[in-house]
Amino acid sequence: GEDLPLPPGWSVDWTMRGRKYYIDHNTNTTHWSHPLESGPSSG
């Protein structure tokens, strides 16, 4: 998808195989999909 801006506290990194993933430092979790690309989340 597009390179959307990341929310505060997020960063992007790549695996050893070159796969892009996103790090949420607020909750110390990692995600394969961009936080703003996922569907609407409630709460």
Rank of each mutant, 00 (worst) to 15 (best):
E2D: 11
H34N: 05
S33N: 14
G9L: 01
E37T: 09
G9M: 02
V12M: 09
D24S: 02
T27K: 05
D3W: 08
S41P: 14
K20E: 05
D24Q: 02
Y21D: 02
R17C: 15
T30F: 14
D13S: 13
L6F: 02
D3C: 14
K20H: 04
P35Q: 03
W14E: 11
S38V: 13
Y22I: 00
M16D: 15
S11L: 04
W32S: 04
P8I: 05
L6A: 00
T30E: 07
P5K: 07
W10Q: 00
D13Y: 14
L4H: 08
S11N: 05
P8M: 06
S11E: 12
W32I: 03
D13E: 14
M16Q: 15
Y22F: 08
N26Y: 07
T15S: 06
S42E: 14
H25Q: 07
T30H: 11
M16E: 15
D24I: 00
T27Y: 03
G43T: 13
L4M: 11
G18P: 01
H31P: 00
Y21Q: 03
S38F: 09
G1F: 10
L4K: 09
G9I: 00
E37A: 13
L4P: 15
M16W: 13
H34E: 02
R17W: 14
G39K: 13
I23V: 09
L36K: 06
P7H: 00
L6W: 01
L36R: 06
N26M: 07
S38P: 12
L4V: 12
S33Q: 13
T15F: 04
I23A: 01
G43H: 10
W14T: 14
S11T: 13
G9Y: 02
P40N: 10
G1Y: 10
L6I: 06
E37L: 14
H34D: 02
W10E: 00
H34S: 05
L6G: 00
L4F: 13
R19M: 11
W14V: 15
W14M: 12
W10V: 01
T30D: 03
H31F: 06
T15R: 01
W10A: 00
W32R: 03
Y22N: 00
M16P: 15
R17S: 15
D13A: 15
N26H: 05
W14P: 07
M16F: 13
D3Q: 10
H31W: 11
V12D: 05
D3S: 10
P8W: 05
Y21S: 01
P8K: 06
V12G: 05
G9S: 02
P35W: 03
W10K: 02
S33A: 09
W32F: 07
T29H: 04
D13C: 15
E2S: 11
H34G: 03
H31K: 04
R19Y: 13
H31I: 03
H25R: 06
H25F: 08
G1W: 09
D24L: 02
S38H: 09
N28Y: 05
Y21M: 07
T27R: 04
L36Q: 05
T30A: 09
K20F: 04
N28R: 07
G1Q: 10
I23G: 01
P40D: 13
S42K: 14
R17V: 12
S38M: 11
E2I: 09
T15D: 15
T29A: 02
H25D: 04
S11I: 05
G18L: 04
Y22T: 01
S33H: 15
S42A: 12
P8R: 05
S11C: 15
T29S: 07
G39L: 13
N28G: 13
G43Q: 11
R17H: 15
S42I: 11
W14S: 09
T29L: 04
H34Q: 03
P8V: 06
D3K: 08
H25T: 07
L36T: 07
L6V: 06
Y22R: 00
G9P: 01
T29M: 05
G1T: 11
P35N: 02
G18Y: 04
M16R: 15
G43M: 12
G9V: 00
L36S: 09
M16N: 14
N28Q: 08
D13K: 14
P5N: 13
P40W: 11
S42R: 13
W32L: 05
L4E: 15
S11F: 04
L36A: 08
R19N: 09
G18F: 04
G18C: 10
N26E: 06
R19V: 14
E2Q: 10
L6M: 05
G18S: 02
G1A: 12
T29K: 06
T30G: 03
T27S: 07
W32Y: 06
S42F: 14
R17I: 10
L36P: 05
N26A: 08
P7K: 00
I23M: 05
E2M: 09
M16H: 14
D13M: 13
Y22Q: 00
H34A: 05
G39D: 09
G39T: 13
I23Y: 08
G39I: 11
E2V: 10
R17Q: 15
I23H: 04
G43W: 11
S42T: 13
R17Y: 15
G39S: 10
P8H: 06
W32K: 03
T30I: 15
D3M: 08
L6E: 15
P40H: 11
P7F: 00
H34R: 05
V12P: 07
L6Y: 02
P35D: 04
S11P: 01
D3Y: 08
N26Q: 07
S41I: 10
S11K: 06
E2A: 10
L4Q: 09
R19Q: 13
S38N: 12
D24R: 01
Y21A: 03
T30R: 13
G18N: 04
P40I: 11
G9T: 00
D13V: 09
N26L: 07
E2H: 09
G9Q: 01
I23N: 02
P7Y: 00
D3I: 10
H31L: 03
R17L: 15
P7L: 02
W32V: 04
T27V: 01
H25V: 04
V12Q: 07
E37N: 09
G18I: 04
T29Q: 07
